[in-house]
Design a protein around this nucleic acid. Structure first.
Length: 557
RNA sequence: GCGCCCGUAGCUCAGCCGGAUAGAGCAACGGACUUCUAAUCCGUAGGUCGCAGGUUCGAAUCCUGCCGGGCGUACCA
């Protein structure tokens, strides 16, 4: 929000300098505003003079001077502009300008942080999409948190976001589920001594399902093995899906649509067959060994892929092609999928297929999220081979709470493997970053309770009067508060929600330090009001950031 | 073998579309509660940014090659 004000200053100065004959470059440079590593170098800096040096064939320092000479900044915006050694142009903002700007936070507290970078654009966001063959594990939880927050961040940036869960309720894994449930049913309910198929799902949850009243009711009257098997699969799938929905709802993750893979075969004709036929018509398929192959290697894939097996059944890829084909036909501007890192090899073939079908493959992005390992007492938690229960998302959420779980999943960038420390997440102390941020928010809230009880002159919290908030730390705090929309925008542009988490931690740290060093209440009307106003802004930004993360912002702790 | 991700302080990680003295948390050590919540703060110590080259005025960041770890490399999903 502040940076956006500075870019045109540099752009215009460059144009003026060129018009005046001081500079000769034809091409307009991209203006990048950076934050200097050191307070002494000002609030913001620009390296434009150094990037121009080559084309201008002049010393960066000289170019910097020529640009600065043509500076035209808004009234009262800049306190100082200095040129530093290699050729940096450093900007020092006027504190009173920042003070006045705080009005923007106070006047629309619920909207602050929002930005228009995605205005008018739509995004289709598909995430989790775990197979309905078992409970969600922590890896799904990470994908769920990432997708959910990315959705919130995109929305805050002006995108229209459609969130979707793709249910893989067709194909092999459902058959395996049916076999598993059937075998457990015979064993546990019917008391028959039948072997459990080796390739079936071993998990304890299958036994719980078949023993449930709903399963037994649905299956009870059937005798025919084939009918029983198929019914067992359907019911087990439904029950698991309900459990998944429940886990996600409890994890504060919601979807606009649950899209069933099997509907691709049955609704509005057979879309899988149609997609295959279309590829065939486009001459992108060929027959080999009785199967139909997708000629994806000509489109950036490592090799060609089977789409229809030699027995005539479509592969999973065929469904996925049909699904993505349909997504594109629904006409979004972008498509984002969140997949586990183990699926990274899958993207080139899907993109290839989209290109073959006449779609722009660049509109499809996939975020690959690395694995999660659990840690307790400094030791890695071994997954139970029997049931996998320690790895279940719901177990972790039950143990550490939704707030901590979501926050921890978003404390790392998606492409770093995550070590989830259960002890730390559970701890209600300074060591736990979740509480650290929440505590900062609660502290700010508490100031207002105190102020009211103590009869402090709060009044309407307008922007502070000029010349009151003069401390360096107040200056920094105001600057960072006003830069918050930029944090949100960065997270949205780069599909990296963790910037929100880091931004919150940094802001909380600043506020805690400020609070410890300076008293806010009882400082005389003018100063107290100004500091309360600043605290209010901190509270607003912390709350809005925590909201973006789907983490609660308690007013009292 | 090939492909993707990672390798930064003792540990866990930011920073990576090139910029100024490489940051944070934890752990270690030393301090701060008769005053707005100590779930907090302040200070000290801690680094060949995996290694070697290259591009550049400038490289943790870009390129190449190695080394190490994870994942993938199905007519599974």
């Amino acid at each position: 929000m502040l940076k956006e004000l500075m870019v045109p200053i540099f752009e215009n100065a460059f144009e003026s300098a060129r018009a005046a004959g001081d500079l000769s470059s034809e091409e307009k440079p991209t203006v990048v505003i950076e934050t200097p590593p050191n307070e002494a170098f000002g609030d913001f800096s620009c390296n434009i003079a150094m990037t121009l040096a080559r084309a201008e064939r002049k010393a960066p320092l000289m170019i910097a001077e020529q640009i600065v000479r043509h500076f035209e900044a808004p009234e009262g915006f800049l306190k100082d502009v200095r040129i530093e050694k290699p050729g940096f142009i450093n900007l020092y903002l006027d504190g009173d300008y920042l003070c006045a700007k705080l009005t923007e936070i106070l006047s629309a507290p619920d909207d602050f942080g929002k930005n228009e970078s995605g205005a008018g654009k739509s995004v289709h966001l598909e995430f989790v999409s775990a197979n309905p063959t078992g409970p969600l594990h922590v890896g799904h939880g990470r994908g769920a948190a990432l997708g959910d927050v990315l959705g919130r961040v995109l929305k805050a940036s002006g995108f229209r976001v459609h969130r979707e869960y793709y249910i893989n309720d067709a194909g092999n894994q459902i058959e395996t589920l049916a076999k598993s449930a059937y075998a457990r049913y015979l064993q546990d309910v019917k008391g028959e001594d039948v072997p459990f198929p080796e390739d079936a799902y071993q998990g304890e949850y299958i036994r719980e399902i078949v023993r449930s009243a709903r399963f037994r009711e649905a299956v009870g009257t059937l005798e025919d093995e084939k009918a029983l098997l198929s019914q067992a699969g359907v019911i087990a799938k439904d029950l698991i899906l309900e459990d998944i929905e429940k886990s996600l709802a409890g994890f504060r993750v919601r979807f606009d649509e649950w899209f069933s893979e099997s509907s691709l075969f049955t609704e509005n004709g057979n879309r899988v067959e149609e997609a295959v036929a279309e590829l065939e018509a486009n001459k992108k398929l060929y027959g080999k060994d009785g199967a139909k192959w997708l000629a994806s290697s000509a489109y950036g894939d490592e090799k060609d892929r089977v789409v229809v097996r030699d027995d005539g059944r479509p592969t999973y890829l065929a469904s996925d092609i049909a699904y993505h084909h349909l997504k594109y036909e629904r006409g979004f501007d972008r498509y984002i999928n969140i997949w586990g890192a183990d699926h990274h090899g899958y993207l080139p073939r899907v993109r290839a297929a989209m290109e073959m079908l006449g779609h722009d493959p660049e509109k499809l992005d996939v975020l690959f999220v690395q694995f999660v390992s659990l840690r307790r007492g400094g030791e890695a938690v071994q997954m139970s081979t029997r049931s996998g229960e320690f790895e279940e998302l719901s177990a972790v959420v039950d143990e550490v709470g939704v707030d901590a779980a979501r926050f921890f999943f978003l404390m790392r960038s998606a492409d770093t493997a995550l070590e989830f420390d259960l002890d730390l997440a559970k701890e209600q102390s300074s060591e736990n970053p979740v509480y650290y941020v929440q505590y900062a928010h609660a502290r700010a809230c508490s100031l207002f309770r105190q102020a009211e009880e103590g009869g402090e002159p709060i009044g309407a919290l307008d922007a502070p009067s000029p010349g009151v908030l003069v401390l360096a730390e107040e200056h920094q705090l105001m600057k960072n508060l006003l830069e918050w929309p930029d944090v949100v925008r960065t997270a949205a542009e780069r599909f990296e929600p963790h910037h929100v988490t880091f931004g919150l931690i940094a802001l909380a740290k600043q506020f805690h330090a400020y609070y410890n060093r300076n008293r806010i209440l009882g400082q005389g009307e003018e100063l107290t009001r100004a500091r309360l106003c600043l605290s209010k802004c901190v509270q607003v930004v912390l709350r809005s950031g925590l909201n973006l993360l789907g983490v609660s912002a308690p007013e009292k702790m």
